[in-house]
Design a protein around this nucleic acid. Structure first.
Lengths: 202, 202
DNA sequence: TTGTGGAGACCGTCCGGACGGTATAGCTGA
DNA sequence: TCAGCTATACCGTCCGGACGGTCTCCACAA
């Protein structure tokens, strides 16, 4: 069975913030710490320091709650992605380099916490109804197009994109971990694809 | 809500095979067609043409059923992987080339059906208890080691591995699709990493 | 050959519990 | 006083699992 729940400590920031935000935070924290099946309306309400009725006042159904979680996630993700791209020097492969920084950057700090949260929301929504992910699919399709127009040789950008998302899913499911040396090596290998407009055969 | 179930047609082969196999097939088909939450003992039993009691005779609990599904999946996956590797010419990058063939090969034929099934089982097990995936994690760790000893420059193999698995997860969640031209381009880009012991910078 | 016993395969029903959602009564600050 | 919000009790549904019964087939003795 699912890991049976340490009290979640202070997963929710100090009990500041309005109820709506607290509920969303609590729901994310529950999924992240105890798995998708643990996310019940009652549990989310309790974790947020709110009654079940109170939760239903803010989110009329579980689906509404999940939709709000996904919306918040999308906003955050879009913003983060744009920030990442903006931080890269202009020129060919800018988006690819941003992705590498995002997935393989040296700064594993606070970022990862948000990534875990994102993964939790993603899985919870998918489980409830795969169709609800359509907005996410639209975002991914958009990114795919942007990558294709990134100024790299055909396929290079998409290969980097797939690798980065592969690493993301590795983390979601805890399938493998790569230590810093391995990450650096992958960064170098993929970085070569992101910076070689002329091809690279031996 | 989840897609509400076309009758699954003849998802299970002709009603041949022993009950055990029929139940496993039915369970996989249900998850694949209607999502993880639709996999209940009753549904699996009905789909397999067996009563609920009959199912519980073969699998004492839902967890036992999932474990059996995962075991069958592991066996299949191991065999397929070894076949794929054996089909590649010996020498450096053999495993990496096998992975590329597996994920990006031109033959999208029957293979994909099995991949979808594998994904379905994977998700169902993860949802029930992430810890149950430990055997899978062991397999992945083993592959990771094999890739590291594949005779390629550091990081190249792992990058290819991540990209291939990224594509696999794209399919699982229906996040993006790449057409054949795009796949060919990725194949070329990653193939360069799989065949360039000397590095490839411009 | 027949009959008898027993074991494995399978069936159908029932139960306890949990979850999503509703209804309603109560609190509280403006 | 009254709207906005909370708390609690409750309903219908569904799922996992337990249980007792039934059918079929085979071994083996008379």
């Amino acid at each position: 069975m699912h890991p049976s729940a340490p009290p979640l400590a202070a997963a929710v920031p100090p009990p500041a913030a309005d109820a709506r935000t607290r509920i969303l935070d609590a729901a994310e924290a529950i999924v992240q710490a105890r798995g998708v099946p643990a996310l019940t309306l009652e549990a989310a309400a309790r974790e947020a320091g709110v009654s079940k009725g109170g939760l239903l006042y803010h989110f009329a159904s579980k689906e509404a709650l999940l939709a709000a979680m996904l919306a918040r996630l999308s906003d955050w993700f879009r913003a983060e992605f744009e920030t990442c791209v903006a931080a890269q020097a202009p020129g060919p492969g800018r988006i690819a380099r941003a992705m590498l920084a995002w997935s393989l950057g040296e700064d594993e700090h606070a970022c990862n916490e948000r990534h875990e949260r994102a993964a939790a929301v993603f899985l919870a929504v998918f489980h409830h109804d795969p169709g609800m992910l359509d907005p996410v699919r639209a975002v991914v399709a958009e990114i795919k197009r942007a990558v294709a127009a990134d100024g790299l040789p055909e396929g290079h950008g998409h290969a980097i994109m797939a690798a980065c998302d592969g690493l993301f899913f590795y983390r979601i499911f805890g399938l493998v971990r790569f230590d810093e040396a391995e990450r650096a090596a992958m960064r170098a290998a993929l970085g070569r694809l992101a910076a070689a407009p002329g091809g690279a055969a031996p």
